[in-house]
Computed example of a mutant assay.
Amino acid sequence: MKNVHIIVATGEWEQDQLRYRRHRLAEFLQRHPDTKEVIWLCPAPMVKGNSCTKLANGIIQWTVQDLLPQKVFRFGRYINGFYKKKLAPFLLYLREFQEKYTLQLWYTFPGFPLLAELFNWNRVIYDCSDLWASPMNGKRSIPAAVRENIIAGAEDRIIQRADVIFCTSEYLRTKIEAKAGTAGKVFTFENGVEFDLFANTSVQTENILPAGFHGTVLGFIGGIKPKLDFELIQEAARKKREWLFLFVGPDGTNDHPAFNHLLGERNVVWTGSVSPSEVPQYMNLIDIGIMPYKSSQYNQAVFPLKLFEFLAAGKSVVGMNLPSTKRYAEDSIYTYLDTDDADQFIGACEQLESCKGQEESIRKRKKLAKSKNWNEVFTEMFRLI
């Protein structure tokens, strides 16, 4: 009997032009020979026209309109009364599959928790990639505490209902096991990499770096969010004017002043959002990949997608305040820092700068990344369910 996979996602497929773990998971399931259909179920601030559409890749996208379009009203995604009626057409749509196929419900964030109880699912899986209830910027406030309670309550319901739970870090696994009350259904699967895509270093995008610049490029690629330490990078940029700091990705900071101040430095370049297919071309401009995260509870749980993507491209990497990555630290490959000190960050980058062209180091970086290919990660996860 073939499977119909329903993936509960945070937003529409091309919401910010970024490709997350959930996108790779959906595409893996879509290619699997035992799959009949993959349905991408997601909230949307505004639903234009038909809420059910077929994407170019063959995946069905079903959108559920938020309470109101403003970001502050997203809490409705976690409270039954604000989405239950909106799910009714979707549940009716699923009935045509119920007798012929196995229905697998995948949560990739703790939205719509009631959905797990409204249908007779063959399997409920929670693929947890973040500490969803914790504020990303690390700041505590009364609104943040209310939000945390709402999301934590929704997640607890999903944890109790789930048959299998996957976590991207050991920190998350420990947290979830404590809530689940059992270790038997919780497993750690770190993020992987589309190795062949990022290992192609033959093409670089043009007209991004300043004319005549031939120095060292330190780069961050991905969603630019408050979890990053903009103040530290600004201090480093002022102390190392001969370096260029390249940021590639959409601004998810909500116009954060610290990010705007950073962009005022003459050796900082931000490209804005780029197409996922173009990301490897920007990767090839970079000499050292940087993951400058703040020290926060949220970042304790993070396993960044970019670690193995940088390594697949042959780039050395410096990561900060990401304890889930510490075990990959190795000279000339990956430097891990558990600090907010700009001078230590600069020192680590200077050390990697001295070996940026070493063929043996490049080979070792690629070898590590190749062992983390997404297909192998998802194949093992699929075997467990």
Rank of each mutant, 00 (worst) to 15 (best):
F310H: 08
I288R: 05
I224H: 00
D130T: 10
N321K: 06
M291K: 05
Q297T: 15
R241L: 05
V317P: 00
I59V: 01
N267D: 05
A178E: 03
L94P: 12
R147G: 14
Q344S: 07
K225P: 02
G81E: 13
T271E: 10
K294A: 10
A329S: 06
E360H: 07
S371W: 04
P304M: 11
L29C: 01
S296P: 15
I288C: 06
A152Y: 10
F198Q: 06
F109G: 05
L352C: 03
E99C: 03
Q234K: 11
L92N: 12
I79P: 07
F119W: 14
F187L: 09
T53G: 09
C128M: 09
S361Q: 03
L263V: 01
F259M: 14
E360N: 06
A144W: 09
K100T: 11
T205L: 08
W132S: 04
Y293N: 10
L384R: 15
D127H: 13
T253D: 07
P226Q: 05
L285I: 02
N267W: 13
N200Y: 11
R21Q: 03
C128V: 14
F213A: 02
V193S: 04
Y293V: 05
E96F: 08
P135V: 13
R147T: 12
P110V: 09
K239T: 06
T102F: 11
G215I: 04
T271W: 15
G223L: 02
G289Q: 06
E350R: 00
T102M: 12
R365T: 02
E278M: 05
E27F: 00
V248H: 04
T102Q: 14
A369W: 03
F119D: 07
L322A: 02
R266Q: 13
G76R: 00
P89M: 03
N207E: 15
N321Y: 02
A154V: 14
R161W: 07
R24H: 06
S275N: 15
L262G: 02
Y282S: 07
T102P: 06
F166G: 00
I150P: 11
E155T: 14
S295F: 08
N375F: 02
I385T: 09
H256E: 05
Q351C: 04
N3K: 11
W106A: 01
A237Q: 02
V146A: 15
V38K: 07
M291I: 12
V124Q: 08
W374L: 01
K100A: 12
V186L: 04
K48F: 14
E37Y: 01
D127E: 09
E265M: 13
K2H: 00
N122C: 11
L68N: 12
K370S: 01
V146K: 07
A211T: 14
E117F: 12
S134E: 12
